[in-house]
Amino acid sequence: MAMFALELGLCFVATIAFAIIFNIPLRLVWWGGFIGVCTWAIYSLMPVLGLSLVFAAAVAAFFASFVSQWFARFMKVPVTTFSLPGIIPLIPGSRAYETMLAFVQERYLYGLEQGVETVLQAIAIAAGLVFAFSVFSVGKGVGQRYETHR
């Protein structure tokens, strides 16, 4: 439990540091940190319940993007300000490293396995973002298939 609290605290610090790397104004970085902590909590608690990491990444990304949209609407600033630091904790860095290491050591099969997992997690993050964005653009989206409103 203490370990988890430490993780959340460090996640807060990391997210705020990344918000500063992206040059987000200081009055807004705290909200990004809050979203990052919630994202990490979802991402690390869902596998405990027996769900896969990729699904956890998708749900966490959905949450991050959804809350970012609310905050952005509420504070009238671009969404990127919140969603960018919010999804930073989900980056599959460890897997990407394993992939590269495996390829460097010519263990191609293991490298492919890790690479596929990396790509899947990246796609899951993108899917989470897309889902939340879709929820917020209901009624004003573009690119319908049939022109039914005439």
């Binding site: 430490l6 460090l10 540091a17 790397i21 040059n23 200081l26 860095g93």
Partner: peptide, 22 residues
């Protein structure tokens, strides 16, 4: 918005804190 040394510092702190999560 931030001086460049502050961004260096943030990269260091961010890298260190994020590495613990991994």
């Amino acid at each position: 918005n931030y001086p460049v040394w502050f961004i260096y510092l943030a990269s260091g702190i961010g890298g260190g804190a994020f590495s613990y999560l991994i």
